[in-house]
């Protein structure tokens, strides 16, 4: 192991995180290895263009179009790519559907794997030690922290994203939502409902 010793090269940089990042960016820019305009473009992409509204569009189509839903469950990668949602951290997609019998919930205990093209950059809590440590062992207590209590007859299936396969939870469509428009339905599909820590149509 190159760095199983005390002198990790990162320790040569300033320790304050803000200063550390700015120093590294300056070094890399002056070496001609990084273009600051490209960094701006990456940030703008994930701050404003690629986020959980993409996933919500997929969920609403699954709720409203049985043929789409069937195709999505069989080959999510191809189906969501057909909607323009493909790329980094979404190369191998699987959709998992919540039912009265099974509630799905996604974690990455080893790092922070997450379906970027559909949900964007993961929230802080998804990347936290507490979520990574607890979600696999006590998912129901974690869900309670999000205000979710499942019926005793519903099993929890936690997906630990240990490979390059990314999981999108298809939450259950809330009762009483017949006749809502696509936009109204999309508003029910929160980011957390597609990770499995919330139910669609409910906040907190």
């Amino acid at each position: 192991m190159p760095h199983d010793h005390s002198d990790h090269p990162h320790s040569l940089l300033p320790s304050d995180p803000d200063l550390r990042v700015r120093t590294l960016e300056t070094i890399l820019t002056r070496k001609g290895l990084v273009d600051p305009a490209a960094l701006d473009e990456i940030i703008d992409t994930y701050a404003h263009r690629i986020g959980p509204r993409n996933g919500a569009r997929v969920v609403v189509r699954a709720w409203t179009d049985p043929a789409f839903r069937k195709a999505l469950m069989e080959d999510a990668t191809t189906v969501v790519a057909g909607m323009g949602y493909y790329g980094r951290q979404g190369e191998h997609m699987v959709a998992v559907e919540n039912t009265d019998e099974v509630h799905n919930m996604v974690v990455c205990t080893l790092c922070s794997c997450y379906p970027w093209p559909l949900l964007g950059i993961p929230p802080g809590w998804y990347k936290s030690d507490a979520y990574r440590a607890r979600a696999v062992r006590e998912p129901r207590k974690v869900l309670a922290g999000f205000g979710v209590t499942l019926p005793a007859g519903t099993a929890v299936r936690v997906w630990d994203s240990t490979a390059e396969v990314r999981y999108l939870v298809i939450p259950q469509r809330p009762d009483g939502t017949d006749g809502l428009s696509e936009d109204e339905l999309m508003a029910l599909v929160t980011r957390d409902s597609m990770i499995g820590t919330a139910l669609a149509g409910r906040t907190g």
Partner: peptide, 9 residues
């Protein structure tokens, strides 16, 4: 944001 972008770049 800068840290994420630097890593990808």
């Amino acid at each position: 944001a800068r840290a994420l972008a630097l890593t990808l770049a």
